[in-house]
Amino acid sequence: MEPMIQVGNLCKSFSTKSGTVEAARNISFSIEKGEIFGIIGLSGAGKSTLVRCLNLLERPTSGTVRVNGKNLTKLSEKELRKERQNIGMIFQHFNLLMQRTALDNVCFPMEIAGISKKEARKKALEYLKVVGLEEKALSYPSQLSGGQKQRVAIARVLASDPKILLCDEATSALDPQTTKAILELIKEINRDYGITVVVITHEMSVVQEICNRVAVLESGTLVESGTVEELFRSPKTEAARRLVFSGRTQIQKMEGKRLVRVTFRDKSSFEPVIANLILTYRTPVNILYADTKNIGGAAEGEMILQLPEIEEVADKMIQYLKDTNMGVEELKSDVG
């Protein structure tokens, strides 16, 4: 079966006063129908340009974008407008019409599509119910919290009955608790409606919470892709490592001769692996950092351990950890 989205050798450059800027360079990836796919990178990596190329709001300089079997780059403007109706988008700053109530904001795309006012209002109420905001139907955006505004924006997208939902930094303006609730809602929509979701973000925590697979962008180039578990457990590129380690803001510097990053696999995050390690070798280890997360319903986590300076003991400990099905990676002493 053909992927829902297939990007082939996509390039996008802009002409500026100081010369040509390559925002995307030879990017290729595919997204399966019904998948939640993450595109992650630091600021300036080219994420927003790439997402705007997916619905051709930005026309690629070269390369192809196939959506639901159609090459968008070959379509006329009229055909492209028709195909864009299948692609919904939510943004960091919600983009609601401030003079319209929540209900009227959700009605707006249906009015443009020529649906009668009565039918549009009926459907809008249904979608506000789906996002848990039925009681706020007559409220204006200024009367809503950030999370409520994003829920209205999601209801408005659902009203267009899309096959694809593009989320461009959709939770960046929200606090962690609200972010979690919005991501949970997006997961429910993906599950209940079978909508393919593309999540653009600079936050590894968002990818871990919601995505199946992820592509890492750096300076307009796709540097790494794979499952979220693969990226979290063993990032292969420096760009991916920076993103995976970015949550450790509280650590200024780690010092020690033998530092290892240990990642849990399967159910090992529930087992007293470190306690058993210390009991086995009767030597203490220093835990410099520890964090566990829920990725795809499985417990995942990492620790940074400072091992004893005696090489022989440290080597045995590393082998012990590997034998207990832990992911083990030796680090430089300045990973903070």
Rank of each mutant, 00 (worst) to 15 (best):
I87H: 09
Q92D: 12
Q92L: 05
F94V: 10
L97T: 01
L97F: 15
R100F: 08
R100C: 02
R100E: 05
R100T: 05
A102R: 01
L103W: 09
D104W: 05
N105V: 13
V106W: 13
V106K: 01
V106Q: 04
F108R: 10
P109I: 04
E111G: 12
I112H: 05
I112S: 00
I112L: 15
A113I: 10
G114V: 05
G114F: 07
G114W: 14
G114Y: 06
S116T: 11
K117C: 02
K118P: 02
E119N: 13
A120K: 11
R121V: 11
R121G: 04
K123E: 13
K123D: 02
A124P: 09
A124C: 09
L125H: 12
E126Q: 02
Y127N: 12
Y127S: 02
Y127A: 08
L128G: 09
K129P: 01
V130Y: 08
G132S: 02
G132A: 05
G132T: 04
E134F: 08
E135I: 00
E135S: 00
E135N: 01
K136E: 12
K136D: 05
S139N: 02
Y140D: 04
S142V: 11
Q143K: 09
L144Q: 13
L144Y: 01
L144V: 09
S145N: 12
G146V: 07
G146A: 12
K149R: 15
K149Q: 15
R151Q: 03
R151T: 06
V152K: 13
V152G: 11
V152S: 15
A153L: 07
V157L: 00
L158D: 07
A159R: 01
A159M: 08
S160N: 02
D161L: 10
D161V: 00
K163G: 15
L166C: 06
L166Y: 11
A170Q: 10
A173E: 13
L174A: 12
L174F: 13
D175M: 15
P176W: 11
Q177S: 07
T178R: 08
T179M: 12
T179R: 15
A181D: 04
A181C: 03
I182D: 09
L185P: 06
I186N: 03
K187H: 04
E188P: 07
N190S: 05
R191F: 06
R191K: 13
D192K: 14
Y193E: 00
G194T: 07
I195Y: 08
T196A: 07
V197N: 10
V198F: 07
V198D: 00
V199I: 14
I200Y: 04
I200W: 10
H202K: 03
H202L: 03
H202R: 03
E203C: 02
E203P: 00
S205H: 15
V206D: 02
V206I: 06
V207R: 02
V207T: 06
V207A: 08
N212Q: 11
N212A: 07
